[in-house]
Design a protein around this nucleic acid. Sequence first.
DNA 1: TTAGCCAATATTGTTGACAATATGACCTCT
DNA 2: AGAGGTCATATTGTCAACAATATTGGCTAA
Lengths: 226, 226
Amino acid sequence: MSELLSPTYTRADEAFDCLQTAIVKGELAPGEKIGELELCSRFDLTRGPLREALGRLESRGLLVRRPHAGVKVVSVSASELMELYRIREVMEGLAARQAAERMTDQEIADLQATLDTHERMIDEAQGQAYYQAEGDYDFHHRIATGSRNTKLAQMLLGDLYYMVRMYRYRLSTSTGRPQRALGEHRRIVEAIAQRDGELAEFLMKRHINAARQNIEKKIEEGELTI
Amino acid sequence: MSELLSPTYTRADEAFDCLQTAIVKGELAPGEKIGELELCSRFDLTRGPLREALGRLESRGLLVRRPHAGVKVVSVSASELMELYRIREVMEGLAARQAAERMTDQEIADLQATLDTHERMIDEAQGQAYYQAEGDYDFHHRIATGSRNTKLAQMLLGDLYYMVRMYRYRLSTSTGRPQRALGEHRRIVEAIAQRDGELAEFLMKRHINAARQNIEKKIEEGELTI
DNA sequence: TTAGCCAATATTGTTGACAATATGACCTCT
DNA sequence: AGAGGTCATATTGTCAACAATATTGGCTAA
């Protein structure tokens, strides 16, 4: 997984990564009650590192533990998912503003190049849904790190995105609106390139708000069930 | 500590609480490198639960671990502290807006009563600094929970406040401006009582921004060293 | 004298066994 | 027959010993 990042990669790190991706990808379903020994055999781990990883994941809100009763993957309701988007709105708004003030010209150029790639993928409709989802993640990821706000990036990348992606995988292809989202991305990058932090913040907030309303509408229409 | 909250309280929970408060109170200084066995003897714990707690604390960003090299309390620079206030500004702004929409009348009445208590404490100047700091925490705590936004409250109470309080203890008495802060608190509660979410958000953001500028000024003047 | 290397040591990472507790089935009593 | 309680079981929480690795001090050589 991220063996290359850290020179020494402990079993606990391994356990953490395995479980996190398993949860995000839905291999461990929300609400599912899972035993430690089952997880151990499944990921070929021992209980010590596993428990350490469980502690981290609990702290990040991806699962809940009841003493002596076991651990289960957190299940987020539709309203709670909407609340996540409200949080994203203000936090990523801040990230966009600070990114406009602090990103290097090179980073901005890379960001624009990323959008070009996304555009080609959408046009060619190659694995549209997957790339759209991953591309969207990539875009927001770059802006979060570009904010140069360590804690902000940590909270976005470490907490919120994993929970959102967890439902992205579930809602999968039906999120739709790729062209429109790409257009919004472009305008945000334009504002960043012009070093207009205030505008970047406004556009980012509106972008996430639109995404939230899009999902909300689909839920109301019964197209999506959570 | 919080033995009463959870019917069964594991050693790992105990270790987590002990370490967290020790870090926040400054008993474990930032940058200090601490050994596991030392912590075990100090808090009368064994290494298993301790390591689980260390994992949680690392995940929350209160300490950093390097494999085989040990664990040290995170040391936040002045600029990083300022970044924390930027995050608080947007997140607590959101919390205030949602609190205005969702708090019960009873909760609002309690909040006002809390401010009355704070006012008496300031007037009587009884342990002004301590009560002002704790009172401020209490105020923000109530609004975070009043937002009815689970994740938002979790992030504020579980992540940000601990880091901010860590420095509150260090800067201790010199944060000052209690009357002015109280007045700002009152106006925020007024907006909440009138169910004016937009105004509550604006006032909260301005309140935290003022607190940030206050600390920033003191740092520039050399009154505070971080 | 200083820079680089090597080994001893102390600390962390890991493992498996032991103790404590929640769950669920079975039985009894109403 | 249904509700309540009790006991067996399986799972989690805890512990202490073992293995692996980073640090530190000393040593050698330039």
